[in-house]
Nucleic acid binder design. Structure first.
Lengths: 222, 222
DNA sequence: AAAGTATTCAATTATTTTATTGAATACTTT
DNA sequence: AAAGTATTCAATAAAATAATTGAATACTTT
C-alpha cells in the first residue's frame, strides 16, 4: 500500500486514539460527566469522584492531553471545564451508544432502583404540558450554580441539601418531578426518596438538561 | 454520598469505559473504520491494517467485548461487522470531534497531501449539481463490494485496481472527482494522482458515503 | 517578605494492555 | 476419514497505564 500511506494512517489513528484514551477510564468519564454540568476546581472534582487530589490531577492531565478539558488558574484554585460544546455532545452520544449496546447498563440501573418508587420512565410531552399548566411542578435538585448555568424552562432550583427546608412550600396533592445531571446522577433519586417518605407524589425525570434540550424541549441559559 | 450510590456509579462508568477501551487503540480504530464500509474476514482485516492475524484476532476480541463488533463463522472464514448502525455514527462523531479539537489532525493531512494536486476541499453542492448535469463525473474507487453495499447516487464504480484500464473511457475535458472511504483512506488520493499524471482534470472528494449522506445528499443502498 | 494553601511533578509499585509465538480448535474439501 | 486451512487460545515478554506518596511549585493572604 506504500510506506507513506501507512505512516499517514498510523499518524491519523494515533491522533484519534488520543480521544479514545481520554474516555477509556471510568474515573475520567465521571470527571467529564461532572464537567459537562459546568466548571469545577481540581479539589471539587477529586471530592466528587472519590479520588485523591494527586490522582484526579493526573487524570485531568490525560484529559487535557486529549484536548477534552481545559483549565486555568483562577485565584487560589485551578478550574477545569470541558474544552468545547462538542465534547459534551460526544459524551451524550457515548452514553446513548452504551445504553443501546451494553445490556449491563440497564441491568445495573434496574438493580440500583429496584424497590425504589417513582423511578419509572416519565413521558416528556406529558410532563412539559403539566408543568406549563401548573398541574405538576419540576424541581432542579442540583447545586444552584449548575441551575444558574442552564436549566429546564419552568423548573425551580431546590438543591438537594435544601430540599427538607423547602418541603413546607410543596403540596401533597400535586405531582412533583425532580431532575439532576442525568440518568447516572443520584441526586434526583435521593430527592424522590425523601419526598416519597414524607407522602409527596414525587417522580424522577432521568434526563439531564442537555437530554431535555435534545428532545426539543425548552432550556434556559444563564 | 452513600456507599450504594458510589457502587452504582462505579459500575455504570465501568461499563461506559468498555466502549472507551474499544476505541483507545489506533489499530482498533482502523479496524472499525474498515468495518464501517462493510463486513470483512479476520484475514482481510489483518492484511489491510498490517497486523498479524493473531494480533488482529486479539484486537477484534476487545471490540467484541465492547459490543462494537459482531462476528460469525461463514464457511472457512470468520466474518466481522459493526454491531450496529449506531457504532458507525459514533465513529463519525469521534472523527469530527478529533478534527475540531486536535490541531494535529489537519497538520498531518496537510503534510501528507502537500505538493499533491487536486486535493482541495470540494463543495458538495456544486459537485452534486455538476454530476446531475453530466458536466462532472464521480468515481467510487473502493472495491466493488463496498460500492454494492452503498454508494453515492450517480457515482460509477471504478475500483482503484481497475482505474488504469478504465481511463480510455474518460475524457480529459471533463472534471472527474474520486471518493473512497473518507478523509483518511488513501484510495481516492492515489486515484487522483494517477489521473493527474495522465492529464485528466481529477479532484478528490474527501467524504465517505456516510459523510455525504449526513450532508443531505442522496445515497444508494445495495 | 513569610507563611499558608492548592496543585502539579517525580518516583515507585502494582496493574493492565500489547505483541509475538507456537499449539489447539473447528470447519472444508478431497 | 484425512488433510488442509483459518482462526483462536495460551503463554510469555515488553510496554503502557494507574495509584500512591512526598517533594516542589505557584499563587494568596497576612
Amino acid at each position: 500500500m506504500g510506506r507513506q500511506n501507512r505512516i499517514f494512517k498510523d499518524r491519523i489513528y494515533e491522533q484519534l486514539s488520543r480521544i479514545g484514551k481520554g474516555i477509556s477510564s471510568p474515573k475520567r468519564l465521571e470527571l467529564l460527566e461532572i464537567l459537562s454540568q459546568g466548571k469545577r476546581t481540581v479539589e471539587e472534582l477529586a471530592r466528587e469522584t472519590n479520588l485523591t487530589i494527586a490522582n484526579a490531577s493526573q487524570h485531568l492531565q490525560v484529559l487535557r492531553a486529549a484536548r477534552l478539558v481545559e483549565s486555568q488558574k483562577e485565584g487560589l484554585y485551578v478550574t477545569c471545564r470541558l474544552a468545547d460544546q462538542l465534547v459534551g455532545d460526544f459524551l451524550r452520544q457515548l452514553r446513548i451508544l452504551a445504553e443501546n449496546r451494553l445490556a449491563e447498563m440497564e441491568r445495573i440501573s434496574r438493580d440500583f432502583l429496584k424497590e425504589k418508587k417513582g423511578m419509572e420512565e416519565i413521558d416528556g410531552d406529558t410532563l412539559w404540558k403539566r408543568v406549563r399548566e401548573g398541574t405538576a411542578i419540576l424541581l432542579d435538585v442540583r447545586p444552584i450554580e449548575e441551575y444558574r448555568e442552564r436549566h429546564i424552562k419552568g423548573s425551580l432550583s431546590v438543591p438537594l441539601k435544601e430540599l427538607e427546608n423547602y418541603l413546607p412550600n410543596l403540596s401533597r396533592k400535586q405531582e412533583i418531578a425532580a431532575y439532576c445531571r442525568g440518568p447516572y446522577c443520584v441526586l434526583a433519586v435521593q430527592a424522590v426518596e425523601i419526598m416519597r417518605k414524607k407522602g409527596f407524589k414525587a417522580f424522577r425525570l432521568k434526563d439531564s438538561v442537555q437530554d431535555w434540550e435534545a428532545k426539543g424541549f425548552p432550556v434556559v441559559y444563564g
